[in-house]
Nucleic acid binder design. Sequence first.
DNA 1: CGTAGTCTTGAATGACCTCAAACGCTGTGG
DNA 2: CCACAGCGTTTGAGGTCATTCAAGACTACG
Lengths: 238, 238
Amino acid sequence: MPPSPDPAVLRGMPLFAGLDADALAEVVRHARPRRVPKGTPIFSQGETAAAGHALIDGRVKIVQTGPDGQQVVMRFIGPGEMFGTLAIFTDGLYPADAVAVSDSLALSWPTAAMTVLMERHPAIAMNALTIVGDRLREVQNRLREVSTERVERRIAHALIRLVRQAGRRVEAGVEIDFPLSRQDVAEMTGTTLHTVSRTLSAWESQGIVESGRQQVVIRKPHALVAIAEDLPPLRPDR
Amino acid sequence: MPPSPDPAVLRGMPLFAGLDADALAEVVRHARPRRVPKGTPIFSQGETAAAGHALIDGRVKIVQTGPDGQQVVMRFIGPGEMFGTLAIFTDGLYPADAVAVSDSLALSWPTAAMTVLMERHPAIAMNALTIVGDRLREVQNRLREVSTERVERRIAHALIRLVRQAGRRVEAGVEIDFPLSRQDVAEMTGTTLHTVSRTLSAWESQGIVESGRQQVVIRKPHALVAIAEDLPPLRPDR
DNA sequence: CGTAGTCTTGAATGACCTCAAACGCTGTGG
DNA sequence: CCACAGCGTTTGAGGTCATTCAAGACTACG
């Protein structure tokens, strides 16, 4: 049997912000930990939601698939974020797939437990409201971007977002800290992997990024921002 | 001074579902009614949210404007729906403009009152969670559509959505029950009014729709669904 | 060392946008 | 009541961004 997780992991999770130690302990008691190796699906679109999830460690990709098989990456989940909870608040069916893109550790709360916890601790419901609200906002922004911007700017925006969420300083600049393919970026921005590849190649030759197999390093974040904001390109160097 | 609104109007509003008569009365006491003539802005993007709103009668358009002035229609609000509440749950700034597209009557609750009501009646918070969850889902679907579908299908989807929300049976078919310009449809689907016009013209010549100045009637909803789902076109008639 | 998955790059096509002009309603003011 | 101005709409022509089709190179892994 897996050891009950350390309550400390819940600290810093926005969903449980503002709860006292007792409440946190109660929350932890209901949680079930699950190790998920890279590449493993955690749940699938259309399934009945048996549980809500929170990521302790690793990285999870949320992908929605359309009727004709077209895929869209809705978001990447990092440590401390919850996922798969939307189903609990709405019709009970997961609206997307969740797949671990790195070896991950997740906690899950059975739907019933989640409901009980929210009833007993209204702060959780309020936190959830804030979180879902923030996400709605973010998706609305992406909708605006996809609707009005050209591909290059959208790719720039996507990378900037990823850097904010999962950027890690390295010698050459800032690295996106998980495996990210051109296909992934294409599915985040509503384009094809070909166009992403061409765009990254162009940026590479301008020294803005360095990228390879499932890996992207941003060397000049400001240049990327300039592209995203459609500012005049910066002077060749500096 | 305007008369305090009839509590009956709140019945049927998802946000206040499940509240008893006393609670409803309390909610009503905090509400302030406001008549809004067609064309009038109710709030503007970037403003601090002074209040949350619910529409009693009429129709309101929610439009987000990007840094370069590009506009995207986020949704149309009909009677019974709340709007402008996202700001309350997040950073306090309205993320979009709201404009009455028909003469309208709205109720508003000052932010502070809204918070108090939610604390006193957790059911409201839970309802809000469901509503925001549903919207998040819907926006995610639109994001997928805009990212993966061609313009014609997107326009078909948009019209179908509008018919569901605001369709009214008329002799010729189903009419979208408020003034809707090509520009509006373009801003809902991430295209230009020109393309929308061409598309509607084509559909008109196939007898699928009838449309004119700020007005659309769908004559063959099933044909529109066929286009949206990318099925083979139906036989010429019937 | 072979194989599968990822990435790159070229060439051709095409969907849609941009630019441009004109038309027709609708409401308004003379 | 009519004329006109304004707005929403239509339609054509041309251009272009990005997709599609196609082939090959690279890399990781078994």
